[in-house]
Amino acid sequence: MLNTVFKLLFACVLLMPGALLVSATAQAHDARPLYIQITELDKPDFENRVPVDHQYSLKMQVPPSVEAGNRPFLTLPDNCSHERFGLIIQLSCASSLAGQELEINYPQFNPSITTLIRASFNSGATYQTLLSPSESRWQIPTEQSTSAVISEYTVLGVEHILIGWDHLLFLFCLLIISGSFKRTLITISGFTLSHSLTLVMTTLGVVELPIAPVEAVIALSILFLASEIVRDRRHTLAWRYPVAVSMLFGLIHGFGFASVLQDIGLPQTELTTALLFFNIGVEIGQVAFVGAVMMLFFLVRRWQAFPLAGFQQLLIYSTGSLAAFWTIERIAGF
Protein backbone atom coordinates (compact mmCIF):
# COMPACT_ATOMS: atom_id res chain seq x y z
CA MET A 1 0.00 0.00 0.00
CA LEU A 2 2.70 2.52 1.02
CA ASN A 3 4.84 1.51 -1.95
CA THR A 4 1.95 2.28 -4.31
CA VAL A 5 1.29 5.62 -2.68
CA PHE A 6 4.97 6.56 -3.02
CA LYS A 7 4.79 5.67 -6.73
CA LEU A 8 1.81 7.92 -7.16
CA LEU A 9 3.55 10.72 -5.27
CA PHE A 10 6.59 10.29 -7.52
CA ALA A 11 4.35 10.46 -10.57
CA CYS A 12 2.87 13.63 -9.12
CA VAL A 13 6.32 15.24 -9.03
CA LEU A 14 6.94 14.29 -12.67
CA LEU A 15 3.55 15.70 -13.67
CA MET A 16 3.81 18.80 -11.47
CA PRO A 17 3.86 21.41 -14.31
CA GLY A 18 0.73 19.95 -15.86
CA ALA A 19 -0.89 19.46 -12.46
CA LEU A 20 -0.39 23.12 -11.64
CA LEU A 21 -2.31 24.07 -14.75
CA VAL A 22 -5.08 21.55 -14.07
CA SER A 23 -5.31 22.52 -10.42
CA ALA A 24 -5.83 26.15 -11.31
CA THR A 25 -8.96 25.22 -13.25
CA ALA A 26 -10.11 22.15 -11.34
CA GLN A 27 -10.03 23.19 -7.69
CA ALA A 28 -13.32 22.14 -6.15
CA HIS A 29 -14.04 25.18 -4.05
CA ASP A 30 -12.42 27.97 -6.10
CA ALA A 31 -15.26 28.12 -8.63
CA ARG A 32 -17.76 29.55 -6.19
CA PRO A 33 -20.24 32.21 -7.24
CA LEU A 34 -19.95 35.90 -6.49
CA TYR A 35 -21.72 36.33 -3.14
CA ILE A 36 -23.37 39.61 -2.08
CA GLN A 37 -24.86 39.98 1.41
CA ILE A 38 -27.04 42.97 2.31
CA THR A 39 -28.17 43.24 5.93
CA GLU A 40 -30.50 45.88 7.34
CA LEU A 41 -29.14 47.51 10.48
CA ASP A 42 -31.13 48.50 13.55
CA LYS A 43 -32.20 52.15 13.56
CA PRO A 44 -30.81 54.36 16.34
CA ASP A 45 -33.36 55.28 19.01
CA PHE A 46 -33.60 59.09 18.92
CA GLU A 47 -35.69 60.67 21.66
CA ASN A 48 -37.13 63.28 19.31
CA ARG A 49 -38.07 60.53 16.82
CA VAL A 50 -36.70 62.38 13.80
CA PRO A 51 -37.06 60.15 10.69
CA VAL A 52 -33.91 58.13 10.09
CA ASP A 53 -32.77 56.67 6.76
CA HIS A 54 -32.74 52.93 6.29
CA GLN A 55 -29.25 51.67 7.15
CA TYR A 56 -27.67 48.56 5.59
CA SER A 57 -24.32 46.81 5.58
CA LEU A 58 -23.05 45.44 2.26
CA LYS A 59 -20.47 42.66 2.07
CA MET A 60 -19.20 41.16 -1.17
CA GLN A 61 -17.22 37.89 -1.46
CA VAL A 62 -15.46 37.75 -4.82
CA PRO A 63 -14.26 34.30 -5.97
CA PRO A 64 -10.53 33.84 -6.73
CA SER A 65 -11.29 33.34 -10.43
CA VAL A 66 -12.05 37.07 -10.80
CA GLU A 67 -8.96 39.18 -11.52
CA ALA A 68 -8.03 41.95 -9.10
CA GLY A 69 -8.56 44.67 -11.72
CA ASN A 70 -11.99 43.37 -12.61
CA ARG A 71 -13.63 43.24 -9.18
CA PRO A 72 -17.38 43.89 -9.48
CA PHE A 73 -19.32 46.75 -7.93
CA LEU A 74 -23.01 47.13 -7.14
CA THR A 75 -25.13 49.93 -8.63
CA LEU A 76 -27.66 51.02 -6.00
CA PRO A 77 -30.93 53.00 -6.20
CA ASP A 78 -30.54 56.76 -6.56
CA ASN A 79 -31.81 57.42 -3.03
CA CYS A 80 -28.90 55.50 -1.43
CA SER A 81 -25.50 56.78 -0.39
CA HIS A 82 -22.61 54.66 0.82
CA GLU A 83 -19.48 54.78 2.96
CA ARG A 84 -16.75 52.14 3.14
CA PHE A 85 -15.39 50.74 6.41
CA GLY A 86 -12.71 48.22 5.44
CA LEU A 87 -14.37 45.32 3.64
CA ILE A 88 -17.83 46.45 4.74
CA ILE A 89 -19.84 49.13 2.93
CA GLN A 90 -22.53 50.94 4.93
CA LEU A 91 -25.55 52.10 2.96
CA SER A 92 -27.98 54.85 3.88
CA CYS A 93 -31.20 54.85 1.84
CA ALA A 94 -34.19 57.15 2.03
CA SER A 95 -36.55 54.20 1.63
CA SER A 96 -36.39 50.44 2.13
CA LEU A 97 -34.48 48.37 -0.41
CA ALA A 98 -37.41 45.93 -0.61
CA GLY A 99 -38.82 46.25 -4.11
CA GLN A 100 -35.72 48.13 -5.36
CA GLU A 101 -33.48 46.99 -8.24
CA LEU A 102 -29.78 46.18 -7.87
CA GLU A 103 -27.27 45.86 -10.71
CA ILE A 104 -23.86 44.12 -10.78
CA ASN A 105 -21.19 45.71 -12.99
CA TYR A 106 -17.62 44.75 -13.87
CA PRO A 107 -14.98 47.38 -14.78
CA GLN A 108 -13.53 45.37 -17.70
CA PHE A 109 -15.61 42.35 -18.72
CA ASN A 110 -18.16 39.85 -17.44
CA PRO A 111 -16.18 36.80 -16.17
CA SER A 112 -19.20 34.52 -16.71
CA ILE A 113 -19.82 33.47 -13.12
CA THR A 114 -23.07 33.02 -11.25
CA THR A 115 -24.05 35.53 -8.56
CA LEU A 116 -25.84 34.81 -5.30
CA ILE A 117 -27.43 37.85 -3.63
CA ARG A 118 -28.96 37.68 -0.16
CA ALA A 119 -30.86 40.54 1.50
CA SER A 120 -31.88 40.32 5.18
CA PHE A 121 -34.30 42.76 6.82
CA ASN A 122 -35.11 43.63 10.43
CA SER A 123 -38.55 42.12 9.98
CA GLY A 124 -36.90 38.70 9.79
CA ALA A 125 -37.54 38.35 6.08
CA THR A 126 -34.65 37.11 3.95
CA TYR A 127 -34.74 37.33 0.15
CA GLN A 128 -32.17 35.88 -2.17
CA THR A 129 -31.60 34.89 -5.76
CA LEU A 130 -29.10 33.04 -7.90
CA LEU A 131 -28.31 34.97 -11.09
CA SER A 132 -26.90 33.20 -14.13
CA PRO A 133 -23.67 34.54 -15.72
CA SER A 134 -25.77 36.42 -18.29
CA GLU A 135 -27.91 38.17 -15.65
CA SER A 136 -26.79 41.35 -13.91
CA ARG A 137 -30.00 42.82 -12.41
CA TRP A 138 -32.22 41.75 -9.53
CA GLN A 139 -35.28 43.39 -8.05
CA ILE A 140 -35.51 42.57 -4.36
CA PRO A 141 -38.97 41.12 -3.77
CA THR A 142 -41.27 42.22 -1.02
CA GLU A 143 -42.07 38.60 -0.28
CA GLN A 144 -40.07 35.46 -1.18
CA SER A 145 -41.93 32.34 -2.21
CA THR A 146 -41.02 28.82 -1.18
CA SER A 147 -40.89 27.83 -4.85
CA ALA A 148 -38.14 30.41 -5.46
CA VAL A 149 -36.04 28.96 -2.61
CA ILE A 150 -36.56 25.43 -3.97
CA SER A 151 -35.48 26.43 -7.46
CA GLU A 152 -32.44 28.47 -6.41
CA TYR A 153 -30.97 25.98 -3.95
CA THR A 154 -31.58 22.98 -6.20
CA VAL A 155 -29.66 24.70 -9.00
CA LEU A 156 -26.94 25.72 -6.55
CA GLY A 157 -26.53 22.11 -5.37
CA VAL A 158 -26.30 20.78 -8.94
CA GLU A 159 -23.73 23.42 -9.88
CA HIS A 160 -21.61 22.75 -6.82
CA ILE A 161 -21.24 19.00 -7.40
CA LEU A 162 -20.56 19.42 -11.13
CA ILE A 163 -17.74 21.94 -10.56
CA GLY A 164 -16.35 20.04 -7.56
CA TRP A 165 -13.71 17.95 -9.31
CA ASP A 166 -12.46 16.32 -6.11
CA HIS A 167 -15.94 15.00 -5.31
CA LEU A 168 -16.40 13.79 -8.89
CA LEU A 169 -13.04 11.99 -8.96
CA PHE A 170 -13.91 10.24 -5.70
CA LEU A 171 -17.19 9.07 -7.26
CA PHE A 172 -15.26 7.90 -10.34
CA CYS A 173 -12.97 5.76 -8.18
CA LEU A 174 -15.97 4.32 -6.33
CA LEU A 175 -17.46 3.28 -9.68
CA ILE A 176 -14.27 1.46 -10.66
CA ILE A 177 -13.85 -0.33 -7.35
CA SER A 178 -17.53 -1.30 -7.01
CA GLY A 179 -17.65 -3.31 -10.23
CA SER A 180 -21.19 -4.57 -10.68
CA PHE A 181 -24.28 -2.38 -11.02
CA LYS A 182 -25.75 -3.68 -7.74
CA ARG A 183 -22.56 -3.00 -5.75
CA THR A 184 -22.29 0.43 -7.38
CA LEU A 185 -25.85 1.28 -6.38
CA ILE A 186 -25.22 0.25 -2.76
CA THR A 187 -21.85 2.04 -2.63
CA ILE A 188 -23.16 5.33 -4.04
CA SER A 189 -26.19 5.16 -1.73
CA GLY A 190 -23.87 4.81 1.27
CA PHE A 191 -21.88 7.83 0.12
CA THR A 192 -25.09 9.84 -0.26
CA LEU A 193 -26.40 8.95 3.21
CA SER A 194 -23.15 9.74 4.99
CA HIS A 195 -22.37 13.08 3.31
CA SER A 196 -26.01 14.14 3.76
CA LEU A 197 -25.67 13.48 7.49
CA THR A 198 -22.61 15.68 8.02
CA LEU A 199 -23.97 18.32 5.63
CA VAL A 200 -27.10 18.72 7.75
CA MET A 201 -25.31 18.51 11.11
CA THR A 202 -22.67 21.06 10.13
CA THR A 203 -25.15 23.49 8.60
CA LEU A 204 -27.31 23.35 11.72
CA GLY A 205 -24.26 23.94 13.96
CA VAL A 206 -24.30 20.51 15.65
CA VAL A 207 -20.70 19.73 14.62
CA GLU A 208 -17.93 21.86 13.19
CA LEU A 209 -14.53 21.13 11.65
CA PRO A 210 -11.93 23.51 10.15
CA ILE A 211 -12.22 23.38 6.37
CA ALA A 212 -8.48 23.20 5.52
CA PRO A 213 -7.90 19.71 7.04
CA VAL A 214 -11.25 18.57 5.62
CA GLU A 215 -10.21 19.44 2.07
CA ALA A 216 -6.85 17.72 2.57
CA VAL A 217 -8.59 14.52 3.71
CA ILE A 218 -10.96 14.73 0.72
CA ALA A 219 -7.93 14.76 -1.59
CA LEU A 220 -6.39 11.92 0.43
CA SER A 221 -9.57 9.85 0.01
CA ILE A 222 -9.15 10.01 -3.77
CA LEU A 223 -5.48 9.05 -3.47
CA PHE A 224 -6.39 6.10 -1.24
CA LEU A 225 -8.96 4.71 -3.70
CA ALA A 226 -6.68 5.28 -6.70
CA SER A 227 -3.86 3.36 -5.00
CA GLU A 228 -6.26 0.52 -4.11
CA ILE A 229 -7.34 0.25 -7.75
CA VAL A 230 -3.73 0.29 -9.00
CA ARG A 231 -2.70 -2.44 -6.54
CA ASP A 232 -5.72 -4.54 -7.56
CA ARG A 233 -5.67 -6.71 -4.44
CA ARG A 234 -9.25 -7.88 -4.30
CA HIS A 235 -9.03 -9.16 -0.71
CA THR A 236 -8.66 -5.69 0.88
CA LEU A 237 -11.45 -3.89 2.75
CA ALA A 238 -11.93 -1.35 -0.04
CA TRP A 239 -12.48 -4.06 -2.67
CA ARG A 240 -14.58 -6.34 -0.50
CA TYR A 241 -16.72 -3.67 1.17
CA PRO A 242 -16.61 -0.50 -0.94
CA VAL A 243 -19.75 0.79 0.78
CA ALA A 244 -17.82 0.98 4.08
CA VAL A 245 -15.18 3.15 2.43
CA SER A 246 -17.77 5.33 0.70
CA MET A 247 -19.64 5.94 3.96
CA LEU A 248 -16.49 6.67 5.95
CA PHE A 249 -15.10 9.20 3.49
CA GLY A 250 -18.60 10.44 2.67
CA LEU A 251 -18.76 11.91 6.17
CA ILE A 252 -15.72 14.02 5.33
CA HIS A 253 -17.04 15.04 1.91
CA GLY A 254 -20.22 16.24 3.66
CA PHE A 255 -18.15 18.78 5.60
CA GLY A 256 -16.85 20.06 2.25
CA PHE A 257 -20.38 20.51 0.90
CA ALA A 258 -21.39 22.28 4.11
CA SER A 259 -18.51 24.77 3.88
CA VAL A 260 -19.85 26.10 0.59
CA LEU A 261 -23.38 26.30 1.95
CA GLN A 262 -22.13 28.18 5.02
CA ASP A 263 -20.31 30.69 2.79
CA ILE A 264 -23.47 31.26 0.77
CA GLY A 265 -25.85 31.34 3.72
CA LEU A 266 -29.38 30.04 4.25
CA PRO A 267 -32.67 31.96 4.46
CA GLN A 268 -33.74 31.73 8.10
CA THR A 269 -37.42 31.75 7.18
CA GLU A 270 -36.92 28.83 4.75
CA LEU A 271 -34.00 27.08 6.43
CA THR A 272 -35.28 23.50 6.14
CA THR A 273 -36.44 23.95 2.56
CA ALA A 274 -33.15 25.48 1.39
CA LEU A 275 -31.05 22.82 3.13
CA LEU A 276 -33.18 19.97 1.78
CA PHE A 277 -33.17 21.13 -1.82
CA PHE A 278 -29.48 22.04 -1.85
CA ASN A 279 -28.84 18.42 -0.88
CA ILE A 280 -31.31 17.23 -3.53
CA GLY A 281 -29.47 19.34 -6.09
CA VAL A 282 -26.17 17.74 -5.08
CA GLU A 283 -27.74 14.29 -5.58
CA ILE A 284 -29.16 15.23 -8.97
CA GLY A 285 -25.72 16.31 -10.13
CA GLN A 286 -24.16 13.20 -8.62
CA VAL A 287 -26.62 10.86 -10.37
CA ALA A 288 -26.09 12.70 -13.67
CA PHE A 289 -22.30 12.26 -13.39
CA VAL A 290 -22.50 8.59 -12.41
CA GLY A 291 -24.95 7.89 -15.23
CA ALA A 292 -22.73 9.64 -17.78
CA VAL A 293 -19.62 7.68 -16.72
CA MET A 294 -21.46 4.35 -16.74
CA MET A 295 -22.88 5.10 -20.19
CA LEU A 296 -19.41 6.03 -21.47
CA PHE A 297 -17.93 2.77 -20.18
CA PHE A 298 -20.82 0.80 -21.71
CA LEU A 299 -20.21 2.34 -25.12
CA VAL A 300 -16.45 1.84 -24.89
CA ARG A 301 -16.87 -1.84 -24.01
CA ARG A 302 -18.96 -2.34 -27.15
CA TRP A 303 -16.09 -0.93 -29.20
CA GLN A 304 -13.90 -4.02 -29.25
CA ALA A 305 -10.91 -2.32 -30.84
CA PHE A 306 -10.64 0.21 -28.01
CA PRO A 307 -7.90 -0.59 -25.41
CA LEU A 308 -10.23 -0.22 -22.39
CA ALA A 309 -7.82 -1.66 -19.81
CA GLY A 310 -5.02 0.70 -20.80
CA PHE A 311 -7.35 3.68 -20.96
CA GLN A 312 -8.74 2.91 -17.50
CA GLN A 313 -5.23 2.55 -16.07
CA LEU A 314 -4.26 5.91 -17.56
CA LEU A 315 -7.30 7.54 -15.97
CA ILE A 316 -6.56 6.03 -12.56
CA TYR A 317 -2.89 7.05 -12.59
CA SER A 318 -3.85 10.57 -13.67
CA THR A 319 -6.51 10.73 -10.93
CA GLY A 320 -4.08 9.47 -8.29
CA SER A 321 -1.36 11.90 -9.36
CA LEU A 322 -3.73 14.86 -9.26
CA ALA A 323 -5.06 13.73 -5.86
CA ALA A 324 -1.49 13.46 -4.56
CA PHE A 325 -0.76 16.98 -5.76
CA TRP A 326 -3.94 18.28 -4.10
CA THR A 327 -3.03 16.51 -0.86
CA ILE A 328 0.42 18.10 -0.74
CA GLU A 329 -0.91 21.52 -1.77
CA ARG A 330 -3.70 21.53 0.82
CA ILE A 331 -1.51 20.28 3.67
CA ALA A 332 1.04 22.97 2.82
CA GLY A 333 -1.75 25.54 3.05
CA PHE A 334 -2.56 24.79 6.72
Rank of each mutant, 00 (worst) to 15 (best):
L9Y: 04
L14F: 15
G18P: 04
A24L: 06
Q27W: 03
A28L: 07
L34F: 07
I38E: 05
V50Y: 12
V50W: 12
V52P: 04
V52I: 10
V52H: 15
Q55I: 10
Y56D: 01
E67G: 08
R71V: 14
P72I: 05
F73Y: 15
A94P: 02
N105Q: 14
A125W: 03
Y127G: 08
Q128W: 05
E135F: 10
W138F: 05
I140N: 06
E143W: 06
A148P: 02
V149E: 01
S151M: 09
G157I: 01
G157E: 01
H160I: 03
D166H: 00
C173S: 09
I176A: 12
G179R: 00
I188S: 02
S189E: 02
S189P: 04
S189I: 06
S194T: 15
T202F: 00
T203A: 14
L209E: 06
P210Y: 03
P210A: 01
P210R: 08
I218W: 05
L223H: 03
F224N: 08
V230Q: 05
R231K: 13
R233E: 14
R233Y: 13
H235I: 02
H235C: 06
T236S: 14
T236A: 11
W239S: 09
P242Y: 01
V245H: 05
M247W: 12
L251V: 00
G254D: 05
A258M: 03
D263E: 15
G265C: 01
G265F: 02
E270H: 15
L271R: 08
T273S: 09
F278T: 02
V293P: 01
Q304K: 15
A305Q: 12
Q313R: 15
L315K: 11
L315D: 07
Y317C: 13
Y317K: 07
L322E: 10
W326A: 03
I331G: 00
F334A: 11
F334D: 05
F334Q: 09
